[in-house]
Design a protein around this nucleic acid. Structure first.
Lengths: 148, 148
DNA sequence: TGCGTCATGTCAGTATCCTGACATACAGTG
DNA sequence: CACTGTATGTCAGGATACTGACATGACGCA
């Protein structure tokens, strides 16, 4: 029985716990990325481009869980700094495929190592079975939230 | 063996999945709270005060996973709108215990129902055992991330 | 061919949250 | 008592991400 009839008990709410875990992860990533002059979204963008070269602005936005407007200003900054390159005009439609430059790849290398250390720390003390459970459970939550 | 030696494979990364789940939850909450004129942090603040009356600004900030500066401007706005009340001066130290006003309680009621519906939807299709697993696993991640 | 729908890139304005900084209050220690 | 460390409330400025809006190109369909 919960504390009150209509309440969302914070101490037992999985939603609250999910937010707490996400907040802790974001803080930990911020901490290691800041010395490298990168934000979490900045890193996400570079990592996405490393694994799937040629992604468009909108696709990157969806992959980093921000709006395409937000990703656009970030991409423009990264282009200006020479970490990312995009063709001047689209070969088909309006889609501009983005790619990492050598500079972008170098910046990503250090960031990836730092971020991976954070993920390893987060998973410390969890068995292989628990990690598999976590994967399945999170996937289930995401799917359930996405259908209205 | 992972895709590349030093890579963080997005398709299998629990950190990435955690971010995706959190993003989906936040979006779903935003969607139901917006018609009520509330943000997620706004709701969190009211819910915290309902369950633990007399919480201070700093305590509310920690509970809502924002900085105390952010919570402070929110509290000032909520005070101005008459949803929350704080004493003019502290009885001890600088701590100002906050409380919900009747108006705040009414605003919270509708929001709680909406948010609970989202959480129910998120948990749809999960067994009781899976929910217990999720709780334990998320707690483990949080604990691991918090010790440097 | 023309039309409606959808996705995209981009600009502008706004909301939200953060870091930095300061003054203050309490607790522990010498 | 004075000193140090820690926690609080608050102000100011800047970073980040959002909503709203527009023009454009691709696609399906009549």
């Amino acid at each position: 029985m919960t504390q009150r009839g209509a309440g969302v008990d914070l101490d037992t709410s999985l939603g609250y716990l999910l937010k707490e875990a996400s907040s802790a992860l974001r803080a930990a990533m911020d901490e290691v990325l800041r010395p490298l002059g990168m934000s979490v979204t900045h890193y996400s963008c570079l990592e996405l481009l490393a694994q799937r070269p040629g992604l468009s602005n909108s696709e990157l936005a969806r992959g980093a869980f921000v709006t395409r407007q937000t990703m656009n200003v970030l991409l423009q900054a990264l282009e200006r700094e020479g970490q990312v390159s995009r063709p001047a005009e689209a070969s088909v439609g309006k889609v501009l495929p983005a790619r990492l430059t050598p500079l972008g790849r170098r910046k990503l290398e250090k960031a990836t190592a730092a971020v991976r250390a954070v993920e390893v720390r987060m998973l410390a003390g969890m068995s292989e079975a628990e990690r598999a459970d976590a994967f399945r459970i999170l996937r289930s939550m995401i799917r359930s939230l996405h259908d209205d």
